[in-house]
Amino acid sequence: MDAARFAAEIEQHRRYLLRVAQLQLRDNDLAQDVVQDTLVAALSGSRGFDGRSSLKTWLTGILKHKVVDAIRRRAKAPVSLSVLDDEASLDDFDALFKANGAWDSPPADWGDPEAALGQREFFDVMEICLEKLPAQTGRVFVMREVLGLGTDEICKELAITANNLWVILYRARMALRICLDENWFGAGAARPKPG
């Protein structure tokens, strides 16, 4: 593939990369810089793209390293650990359960949820749900599920314990599940009909 075409194809993923960087860094200027670095690195390292993964996946891999670099540079002004402590509590979701631990607000039946994956609008809703997560919770979830960092790596970079991490990821999944239920899968959700 010639350089101009490769550059054009990469450019198509700028918006996605920016969204992910913003979701993780929660800082627009920094996210812009990180995405710029990612695109420059992708262009200069285009021979590293062997076509075995999708271009988007390959770019996500580069973005991952750039985001981790940015976190490390920012480590002198670390994320507020007290905020993280607030978000590392399980209390909020206790209301979903009765005192004896049984569901009080049980999960709804989503039918065949994978059908949603074919619809672009689903991913718009998912991005909105990701944005609505509490900041630190969202940052951790994006590191784990979009950037694909291992749990050990996340704990190390953010200086949190494995137990903190599990609680935060549980909270993120719980909140996303509820958001998707309200805005896509639930009976009251105004999702577009397929086809």
């Binding site: 993964s53 569901w103 049980p106 999960p107 039946d109 989503w110 991913f123």
Partner: peptide, 22 residues
């Protein structure tokens, strides 16, 4: 059955996030 639904939803989240980045 409720937790079985929850399990399906957890798996779906993982799948959906995987699809988001590809």
């Amino acid at each position: 059955a409720m937790c079985a639904r929850f399990e399906t939803q957890m798996r779906f989240l993982r799948t959906a996030m995987g699809r988001y980045r590809t």
